[in-house]
Design a protein around this nucleic acid. Structure first.
Lengths: 327, 327
DNA sequence: CTGAAAGCGCTTACAG
DNA sequence: CTGAAAGCGCTTACAG
């Protein structure tokens, strides 16, 4: 049924090795080249990748571990990874872990088992188990969105993002501020982003700043905001993510609190939707697509044993829109 | 370095075939079983999947072709596919085509080349080239979201969705109606969904209905809505997708048109975000996750050469929220 | 430039 | 229950 290299060789009147050489760009005479070319086309021959990989001991697979598939950040990053990988003739494999840490570890080992060449890890946390797995598999790994000294990392400048936002709301005259953040287990979002905001706000001695915590879910953020709006009466709520901001805005609408007249709200991320809602959300744009592209470039370099910076930091960009009032 | 079945066999003092049999659940005596088990654990042995696939002539890969990664519908469907595939020890491969029809065809052939066992195709259109490719590769294919008599298909009940929405706005007293749809090249969304609406509206002789077309992009929808709001003065705009509805709502906000007091708006899809915006969007919920699960189940059955319905239709559900006024 | 041969790491009849 | 042998479809030195 399906043709093998032997069939082609026989039809072309040459040895299998010659066909293989042709396939792999080795030196072949023009006559045999044309001959083989024609036969391959005629026979609709495609090489068996398993036989290739078995022999060559390597694959063109790059595995990507993602905590979730239904997030703007993940989607954009994946698209960037995929585009760049395609260009370089690598194929992306995705393992979705649905925010389950155990599955994350499992996925790493699974990928190793499949002899993929490298792993791109979009993790929210890096635990000991992660480090052990990364060490065990002896395959290049690059971390995206989080950093760790023992692993090649690519991150967004969370601290600067926080700082930009902190400065901005100060500039707009806000003095009574609520920061609605997330768990510190997520270093990037939970710690650095908040640190940036805090650092900017510390330049303002007469500011009142209160910190609250919620989850990444819009509904949880909504509930948290409802409580906050009952007790505190801040002029602005700085949310750790655009999704949280969306939840806060919803809560405000339901309570009849107008944005930005009664309450300013900000996010982080720069999701497409933040521009479409009303009022449009002031946020800090993260370059997820570019992060994906660069992560792909880095993992390929790592696979090819070329040097790569241990840490790359992507710039971020403040986007001023309508959800912040100028007091 | 990495262990092979031969190493394990030697250490266990048995033949390679015995180890293989153990691995594949064949009959082995308790003693050798325990022995092999122990050695495998000690040596941290993992079978080489390429050698397995080369010999066994099949893989546990299921390829999924998606037109885009950054859409709620795609994400949810992929999650459903992935979950179900995992359960059955299949691995999902994703090819993103960025809405490029040529890449879609290419992806199908690429998958075949990689000897994947089956393909799940989330296409917006089914062209001759698709049919040729599907026919050429001789691998089971299931179409999701679109239907075609020559291919196993799994669809949402677009016609009924349209009908439900048409009935609903009629029930709410709307008589001056604009339908903002998309290209008929997309049969499911462009034709059937619209047909459903039309069918419902035809029961209303004194209704005024006008049809417009836009793209799937929010920004295009926004521009289209801006024009529509200048000329026509409908009481409701029925949008072919939630994203289009989001664009329409944005345009309305910018023009100072209040929703739903001045204009009612509806969508299709049931994206999470539609609940968070204000006012919450009336829409028809599609069960993307379940579609993914079922598509996975079907493709597995097809791979195992079990019978599968040529066409499966998933139910949809009207969700009444605040964006439709009761006149 | 070309070919014969060995081998990648498995699985699968076939004997015993 | 167990083993020896052949073979899956390729690639890679090695000779010529």
């Amino acid at each position: 049924m399906t043709k093998t290299i032997a069939d082609i060789a026989k039809l072309a009147g040459v040895a299998k090795s010659t066909v293989s050489r042709y396939l792999n760009g080795g030196s072949v005479s023009d006559r045999t080249r044309e001959n083989i070319e024609r036969i391959i086309k005629e026979q609709n021959y495609v090489p068996n990748t398993f036989a290739q990989s078995l022999k060559a001991k390597r694959t063109n697979f790059i595995g990507t571990v993602v905590p979730r598939l239904d997030s703007y950040a993940t989607s954009q990053t994946l698209i960037g990874i995929d585009e760049e990988l395609r260009k370089n003739h690598y194929q992306m494999l995705i393992a979705n872990t649905s925010q389950d840490l155990d599955r994350e570890i499992e996925a790493i080992y699974d990928f190793a088992r499949q002899k993929i060449s490298g792993i791109i890890l979009l993790a929210a946390q890096v635990t000991e188990a992660h480090l052990t797995a990364i060490h065990d598999i002896r395959i290049p790994v690059i971390l995206v969105g989080q950093q760790h000294d023992q692993v090649h990392s690519l991150v967004h400048d969370d601290k600067r993002a926080g700082w930009l936002m902190g400065r901005h709301i100060l500039d707009q005259g806000h003095r009574d501020i609520v920061y609605l953040g997330v768990t510190e287990k997520d270093r990037a979002v939970g710690v650095y982003r908040k640190e940036g905001v805090k650092q900017a706000l510390e330049t303002c001695p007469d500011c009142r700043v209160r910190y609250f915590e919620t989850s990444f879910k819009m509904t949880d953020a909504m509930a948290a905001a409802t409580r906050i709006l009952e007790d505190a009466k801040p002029s602005v709520i700085v949310c750790a993510t655009d999704n949280i901001a969306l939840g806060v805005i919803k809560a405000a609408h339901l309570k009849g609190v107008r944005i930005p007249e009664d309450l300013s709200v900000t996010g982080f991320g720069g999701y497409d939707i933040t521009e479409m809602i009303h009022p449009a959300l002031t946020t800090v744009k993260y370059h997820y697509f570019q992060a994906g592209e660069q992560a792909a470039r880095h993992i390929i370099q790592l696979v090819l044993e070329q040097p790569v910076d241990r840490l790359s930091v992507l710039d971020v960009e403040l986007i001023r829109r309508e959800s912040v009032d100028n007091l």
